[in-house]
Simulated scan of single mutants.
Amino acid sequence: MFNELISIILPVYNAEKYVSKCINSLINQTYKNIELIIIDDGSTDNSTAKCNYYLMKDSRIQLININNSGVSNARNVGIKNSRGSWIMFVDADDWLEPDAVEKVCEYVLDKDECDLIQFNCNEVNETGRLVNKKEGVVNLKTLSGLELKNYYKRIFIPSGDLESLEVFGFTRPVWGKLFNGKIVRNNNILFNHDLKIGEDMLFNLEYFSHCKRIILMPHYLYNYRVLSSSAEHGYMQHAIDQYSLLMKFIYIITKQSRDAKDIDNAYRLFIIRSTLLALTRGPFHSKSGFSFKDRRLQLNKLLQIEPVKAMKNCELNTLMSKKENIVFFALKEEKLLVLNVLLDFKYFINRLRKSRGKTI
């Protein structure tokens, strides 16, 4: 019978509206051999009091209070204080189904040398009402060899983007997964606390590189709350710096695995999309207030980083949108003016719509 300790790492920052539901879902799991490591990341609301209440209620809870330093550092503190054979990450505004850990552990018991187990998620709104069941695996899958490469590609190309790629559910987030604690600790895999975007993706890429077998479960066990405050493509003050940093780290981590042509294609498409996001979320966003000269300088700055510069020497045979094709052409042929005109046009259209109350 499987009875290994499961470490559940829960970073909390100003989540007083949701944290009680989350913690209740964890301490009431049908699988009892868990340790819940709560990292209070300097909350200024009632989250701290709520966490302390549960600390007194359940001896399996470890509460660590730290100064506010971001979710990556909070998770790292959780990893360093974990004792479990397996590690699971949960966000404070989400929750697990009551038998989630038990169901996942059944597959750990059944499969030899399993390095990662992933399960599906429900998408819910702020009130907790089900919005939809996110695209996930339909049947149980055990991945190794070539299938593992296809799974690896999915971290660059999100599920559903390309018909030619099989659906592997959510590869980018760290939630909805059970990680082998030995792999994490032996390889010192931690979150990069300099990043404010793509932290999960970077952690997973490094972890996946040590995996030989992955199990994808068809069960919907994680409830992911979509909050209106978490606008994924809104204005970002330091977008150029953050996306540049993300692309540089991924360029280094994936250098060896990009020998395969298909992974190379997926990686290059990711670079194109990240370049576009860095510009449209940063200097070319309607809220940026950058002058024409400053937008041009920021564009030049982004084009000088190694992953973007490398695009001019490559081919890309994959499905892209019109915008992505233009960006790829501009990067490959070093047509800076083409990219500048495209982005300036979008910038001025959005400024006009903003002034009329129709910002996109």
Rank of each mutant, 00 (worst) to 15 (best):
I8T: 00
N24Q: 09
M201V: 08
I197G: 03
C114V: 14
M311Y: 02
C114A: 09
I263W: 05
S274I: 09
D58C: 07
P11R: 04
Q242M: 08
R295L: 03
R281E: 09
Y31A: 06
K354D: 06
R273K: 11
F191I: 03
I326D: 06
R281Q: 15
N65T: 15
Q118R: 10
V137D: 02
N33W: 04
F170V: 10
N67P: 12
R75M: 05
K248L: 14
V138K: 10
K248D: 15
N120R: 03
Q29S: 06
I34V: 06
N350V: 07
Y107W: 15
I183R: 07
F270C: 13
N139W: 08
L276Y: 11
K134H: 09
Y235M: 00
H285A: 06
Y13F: 11
T359M: 12
L246A: 05
N325K: 13
L221Q: 00
K134N: 14
F191D: 00
N46A: 05
L216A: 06
S228P: 08
A239D: 02
A330R: 02
K134T: 11
L26A: 06
V341N: 15
E306G: 10
E334W: 09
H233L: 14
Y54I: 01
I61S: 02
F292W: 12
V184P: 05
S82F: 00
I34E: 04
L178M: 10
D112S: 15
S144K: 12
N14R: 07
K177R: 13
W175S: 15
E199L: 08
L352S: 03
L331G: 02
W95F: 08
A100S: 06
F89Q: 00
L245G: 12
I79R: 02
S291N: 05
A100W: 04
D241A: 10
A260Y: 13
S286L: 12
R258C: 08
L299A: 04
N76K: 03
K32M: 06
L337V: 09
N150L: 12
D344E: 13
F329K: 11
F119A: 01
S69L: 09
N317W: 15
V124T: 07
Q237F: 15
E306D: 14
S20W: 12
N313D: 10
E206I: 11
K182C: 06
N132Y: 14
S244M: 07
I6L: 06
L116W: 01
R356C: 09
M56L: 13
M217R: 03
K57P: 01
V12C: 04
Y18L: 07
S229L: 12
F119Y: 02
N132E: 09
G198W: 04
E163I: 11
P218R: 07
D58W: 04
A231N: 14
D94E: 07
D40I: 02
G160Q: 08
R258F: 08
L277K: 10
K32F: 04
A49S: 13
L279V: 07
L246Y: 03
V77G: 05
G357W: 01
L277S: 09
A49N: 15
A278R: 02
I38A: 00
R154N: 12
Q304K: 15
L148F: 07
F119P: 00
K322M: 14
R129G: 14
I117F: 02
E135H: 13
